[in-house]
Computed example of a mutant assay.
Amino acid sequence: MTFRIRAARANDLQPLYEMAKLTGGGFTNLPPDRKALTAKLSRAAEAYANCEEGDPKNPKDELFVLVLEDTATGEVRGTAQIFTSVGRQWPFYSYRMATLTQHSKELNRTFRAEMLNLVTDLEGSSEVGGLFLHPSERAGGLGMLLARSRYLFIAMHRKRFGDKILAELRGVIDERGGSPFWDGVAGRFFGMSFQEADYFNAINGNQFIADLMPKHPVYIAMLPETARSAIGLPHPSGRAAMRMLEEEGFAYEGYVDIFDGGPTMTARTDRVRSICEAKEVTVTHIRAPEGTGGATKALVATGRLADYRCTFAEVAEADGGLVLDPVAAAALGASVGDKVWFVGR
């Protein structure tokens, strides 16, 4: 069985909708709403059709949607998204943890108060998000293929993306689908449940946050323990994703999601492992690379924009180019003489 990543198309709406219903809430980039998903696919189609190179210092507000496809059946079994520049349509809000230190001479004591400050520090960054893998396919490294295919796409279209990149991880969600962080912080000001706010944000954007969210710092000591303990923690299903981000060079720097308190990971785009280690080469042979010096497993990608495709492959560098295994070549539609990008698995 062979899987490949490709650009999403309008007729992927139904499988995306079916997967969205499986997310369990708190998954803003993949809402179970046909109208919102149709709008995402339309926006992605515009981005794929735009052949302008772009400017990393001032990237446009574009969205690229990718899907994981079973090449044998044509079924879509996963998805991921890339945003070239967040905060263009409306402010990109985060909480950032900070510490205020105060000293009392009379008591001869120093007090340190941890706070959450509402900030837009990450505005203009690129974002990788919206990654969801069908539960029946969570084996064989397909989550890694989905995640890292985004970095190869960025490497191949570098000028369209900013100099900083972020990834928001879903925070702690309880058994009833609620968020302890939301209940302890923002829920007190908005008069709506986490599920209602999360769905509204996914469909309409987060301008209502700007309208209603208090601008003063939130003292963490004043929050209930359930909310405090959720700050900066990923959902249990997101721990593997957090480890993969760390392996790529992302770090948690105190930014948390304003809805569920999940960690926001950040990195310099050109220091992300799968971006800085990616190589562009010419396919010189299509055959099994066994017996060729330096044979290795890799992610290989080809095609620009809407023609983008990525898959796992067995490769070897030889004769000034790349030896590519036939199965991967078929999945990519690659021939001898074609340019491809690859990075070690």
Rank of each mutant, 00 (worst) to 15 (best):
A10V: 04
A10F: 09
Q14H: 13
L16A: 05
L22S: 00
L22R: 14
G24K: 10
G24R: 04
N29S: 03
P32N: 06
D33K: 09
D33C: 05
T38P: 02
T38R: 09
A39C: 05
K40Q: 13
A44Q: 07
A44V: 01
A45V: 04
A45F: 14
A47T: 08
N50I: 03
G54K: 09
N58A: 12
D61Y: 14
D61C: 13
E69I: 04
G74P: 12
E75Y: 07
Q81V: 06
S85E: 03
W90P: 04
F92Q: 11
F92Y: 15
F92T: 02
F92L: 05
Y93S: 08
S94V: 07
T101S: 13
H103Y: 15
S104M: 12
K105M: 11
R109K: 15
T110V: 07
A113Q: 12
M115W: 14
L116I: 06
L116W: 15
N117L: 14
S125L: 04
S126C: 07
V128P: 03
G129R: 07
L131K: 05
S136I: 02
E137Q: 15
A139S: 15
G140W: 01
G143S: 06
L145P: 07
R148C: 02
H157W: 01
R158F: 10
K164A: 03
L169F: 08
F181W: 13
G184Y: 11
V185H: 14
G187Q: 06
G191F: 13
A202T: 04
G205I: 01
V218L: 14
L223H: 12
A227M: 12
R228K: 13
S229Q: 15
H235M: 06
P236V: 00
P236W: 14
S237E: 10
A240T: 09
G254V: 06
F259I: 07
P263I: 01
A267M: 03
R271G: 00
A278H: 00
V281Q: 02
T282L: 09
A301T: 01
A301I: 09
C310L: 00
E314G: 02
G320T: 06
P326D: 06
L332S: 01
G333V: 04
V336R: 11
